[in-house]
Design a protein around this nucleic acid. Structure first.
Length: 286
DNA sequence: GCCCAGGTATAAA
DNA sequence: TTTATACATGGG
């Protein structure tokens, strides 16, 4: 990867496996706005970023240039070799071959764990446009003003709010789940500082101790904010996809889960995202 | 009106 | 252990 630094922007080129549209629109993050084709505004880690891709080149317009190496390189996982990962995923697997062909430019983001916890609580039994709206409501109501938009509220800012105030952001029945998450994190029962060093299985148990966080949401948090690419895709999407593709409709969830485990092994985390795209484009999993 | 959404807690079989 | 249902809200 080649990096060029200018006064107001950073340009990278000679990279592979980075498509901004696929990366943002695949459902792993919610705070972005499409300005034009391959041209987005992103809000993450209390910073705003404009990003623009064209002809094998990516232009970053952060608030300050230092932000690029301090924050955005890690956020977009730019130091990991995705080409090699994709080769290994595609080996002897026709489904992943097709999926990679369809959306080979996805990068698994390194998002803020607290924001990701709250965001994926909001995601349950909900649709992406509504999830984005609820998160935007909470940011506007409770978060700090940035240059143009609002930062996702901090743990402290959430802790100052009542259940009623949180529900006013249209969280629905998930308001009480958010309250429990905030209270457990504030009280240290869920220790965000330990997220970097703990075993994935222990971390998952800790996350699932929060009222309203089950296996699916826990996996999303582990994958999209903690680089735990080995998480097993327990989510109903993948089970349904497996059911459609490989097994009879009468197969139990257990049969499907077992088949998926054999198929993906420790690469399941990446497989989850690719499968999502594959399913969406082929209209599978309804 | 009716159905359902990138799920989960709960009760009941 | 597995299966059915309610849940807030809004869009199709």
């Amino acid at each position: 990867m080649k990096t060029e630094i200018f006064a107001d922007k950073v340009i990278i080129s000679e990279y592979d496996s980075f498509d901004i549209e696929e990366t943002l629109e695949c459902g792993q993050c919610f705070r972005f706005f499409k300005i034009a084709e391959k041209h987005y505004k992103i809000i993450a880690h209390a910073k705003e970023l404009y990003i623009y891709q064209h002809e094998g080149v990516t232009e970053f317009y952060p608030t300050t240039i230092e932000e690029f190496k301090d924050l955005w390189v890690h956020y977009f996982d730019l130091e990991r070799d995705y080409t090699q990962i994709k080769q290994s995923l595609a080996q002897n697997d026709p489904v992943l071959c097709k999926a990679i062909e369809f959306a080979g430019g996805i990068r698994i983001l390194n998002q803020d764990p607290f924001e990701t916890i709250i965001s994926f609580i909001v995601s349950q039994n909900n649709r992406i446009p509504m999830i984005k709206k609820v998160i935007d409501n909470m940011s506007r109501q409770f978060g700090d003003k940035l240059t143009e938009d609002y930062a996702f509220p901090t743990l402290q800012q959430f802790a100052e709010r009542s259940l009623e105030e949180i529900c006013e952001c249209k969280t629905g029945f998930r308001g009480k789940y958010i309250m429990d998450a905030v209270s457990k994190i504030s009280g240290g029962l869920v220790d965000l500082q330990g997220f970097k060093v703990k075993q994935t299985t222990d971390l998952k148990k800790e996350l699932m101790s929060i009222y309203g966080i089950g296996s699916k949401v826990a996996d999303c948090i582990l994958l999209f904010s903690c680089s735990r690419h080995e998480v097993f895709p327990t989510d109903v999407w993948v089970k349904r996809i497996m059911s459609e593709l490989y097994l009879s409709e009468s197969a139990t969830l257990n049969d499907i889960a077992k088949a998926a485990a054999e198929m993906f092994g420790d690469k399941a985390g990446f497989a989850q995202q690719y499968l999502f795209h594959y399913a969406r484009v082929h209209n599978i999993g309804k």
